[in-house]
Amino acid sequence: MSTIALTAPAAMPGAPARSSGYLVLAPSCLVLTIFFALPMGTMIGMSFMDAQTLSPTLLNYQRFFSDGLSLAGLYRTAVMSILVAVCVTVLGYPVAYYLARSRSRWRALVFALALAPELAGVVLRTYGWLIILEDRGFINDMLINLGLIASPLPLSKNLFAVVVGLTHVVLPFGILSLTTSIQGIDPNLERAAQMLGASRLSVIRHIILPLSVPGIVSSLLISFTMAASAYATPALLGGARFKVLATMIYEQVLFYIDWGFAAVMAIALLIMMLAISFLGIRYETRRGNRRSNREGEAS
């Protein structure tokens, strides 16, 4: 995604002032080196060090794999992120299909409703879900008032609440990537199938779904990575009863002040994210290869 700018022809032939070119590049490089590259290096170094004596050790990693809590946190993070990815893609698909195909004047409204919450910021939306899901919140209050339940249902401070909150946070991004993909499918294929007598259901099953697999994959990947690295929503909706890697890292740094171990957890999260992105890139290149092979055969 980042190479678009570079493959397009540059505006102007390279000017002779190469040195001034490097000079204007310097501030960005300096800032990123001091506040990104060096900190990342320090963090990786710290993960191999004893926090007190600063002598090299593998104990932090050993602890991560043996204390039971950390791997459980990693597992919870993965389960939560997979659930969010699936929910976002399933909920986003009908809306994306509508946005991609509709010509009606309601389209703009649906588009605004689907994407505007993104501007509201994560805290406001998470706060909304807190009010709705809390023990004394909107839903429990209503059910108790109606006499349907005697004691509040456990709707907050658990996996359910975090998945609901994160699905809400990530949904606009899922809808955007699905919409782009569905827009790329030729609508004539659907029309042709319908004319030949295919039912709506078989058009969906045999044409739309298979052709939008790339969009589905990218929606799943975006949602997974966004969910796995989210901090505020799991912190507020999961609380102390449902901890994921992001909130555990925060605790290690600010409460236990165990930097080496915090570094290991951060690296675990980073590796999980990079692995998922790598799968995505490999899927993309494979698909690209298959397509160019097919075109090669056709010509």
Partner: peptide, 28 residues
Amino acid sequence: YERLPGSTAIMAGLLSPLSVPQIVKGVA
């Protein structure tokens, strides 16, 4: 615009913080 040699690599470097989760950048 100036098309410095090695622009692809430079650009990848400039964009690299995007692939690191914010919480990890924060810890670092």
